[in-house]
Design a protein around this nucleic acid. Structure first.
Lengths: 226, 226
DNA sequence: AAATTGTTCTTCGTATACGCTTTTCCCGGA
DNA sequence: TCCGGGAAAAGCGTATACGAAGAACAATTT
């Protein structure tokens, strides 16, 4: 929301709580901590090699972000993304990313478009190399970049968080949906470059619909441990 | 997201950090702490009569919610909703609440519609009584209710948070926009009752556009101290 | 076998300490 | 008077310890 302010005056300190939060998030998304698993403060403190204080602060934020659930006096457990909410998440993402595509189309500079094209190229290449993890990574980078280009910090921050959760559900459920449809991505970037908001929005919607459909196929059955 | 779990097993403890967070939020929204104002941990701890720890945890969450900005090694300041972001917020809200209206139209039960109509009635009555604060309150209640009826927890939670921020900007800038347009509300509820998603979405968009325009009129000039 | 009691684990909040930046403020010089 | 520099103060970041209270589980008793 205000990263620009943050790094203005000397501040590359990166507080421990932030490092812990990042580590915790990725551990949960990567499935190192499974849904329903108990996260005691002592254990996390030991895992990350810090004291309990930074852990507690990270846990509160993780709760606000929906990655853990905190039961008063009982501690934190990893949240359980039920399969029911996949559809809900996509419904919101669809709207949000469509708006992002429109705004990006209206505001993208030549440099922005170039950056997107670069990601597209790398994506194609990685696809040819069958480097699936890299493809997934580039896919994320592209979406996040478009969000950023939209220039709407609220949109960006909300959609980003949603995106993380989608990834989480994906990784828990099954492998990434195999060949990310780069054709759709190319159309999306083309539309953004054209500056035509309507067209960009349509392209985003088409892409999200396809992704949503793929998600449903992939994610048969529910998750959630306890 | 999982409030249902929370109150299942005995837990009316309400940790201090939550009380502090709530107090902090309302203090900021009510303008008791003004944008740009420095919030030292010691001072907050004293204000709320607690130690630094609960304060710190509340601050982290408040930061995640966008109410404060935390500069590493420099502490927290109340965030400054610049007039620029008002537009951004409404842009997102428009999409989100339009979706909510559609979903509500598709899923609303008779009881849901009755609840909405009740709010509408109270609103009309309060308007006649010129009870502006009550009108504003009912206006919020109506929007929040529609969000809830949509049945999409993500949508609901995100839009709710956004809604809080809009209120914040309003209260700082000026009084509530005078006579909330209950005519628009009535059309929206009618559309929801009809079960016609498209129509509900159009009604929501029209309403949000009007609100956005009013907001711009009302909020001439920027906010933010320093 | 069921109920009660007691023990243990953990969270929650407080207090304290200390290093390290940032901020403030005072003082001397131009 | 104004400016700059440097010492002192303020405040964050982190660690640690401790007591209180709740929850879970085991043991004991009825």
């Amino acid at each position: 929301m205000a990263e620009d302010l943050r790094d203005k005056l000397g501040a590359q300190h990166l507080p421990l709580r932030d490092q812990v939060l990042t580590a915790l998030r990725t551990a949960i998304i990567d499935g190192d901590y499974l849904p329903g698993e108990r996260l005691t403060e002592d254990r996390l403190a030991e895992d990350f090699g810090v004291s309990r204080n930074p852990v507690r602060e990270a846990l509160r934020v993780a709760e606000a972000e929906g990655f853990v659930v905190i039961l008063p006096r009982r501690g934190a457990v990893v949240a359980s993304p039920s399969s029911g909410t996949i559809g809900d998440m996509f419904a919101v993402r669809e709207r949000l990313e469509a708006l992002a595509a429109r705004l990006a189309a209206e505001r993208a500079s030549a440099a922005d478009v170039a950056a997107l094209r670069a990601l597209l190229d790398q994506g194609r290449e990685a696809t040819e190399r069958q480097d699936l993890p890299r493809v997934a990574e580039l896919n994320s980078a592209l979406h996040l970049r478009i969000l950023q280009i939209s220039g709407n910090p609220w949109l960006s921050s909300i959609a980003k968080s949603l995106y993380l959760h989608v990834q989480w559900v994906f990784r828990l459920g099954a492998e990434q949906r195999a060949p990310h449809s780069w054709a759709e991505h190319i159309q999306l970037v083309d539309a953004i470059e054209s500056g035509d908001g309507d067209r960009a929005e349509r392209a985003a919607l088409a892409h999200l619909d396809a992704a949503s459909a793929a998600a449903y196929e992939n994610a048969e059955g529910g998750y959630g441990a306890r």
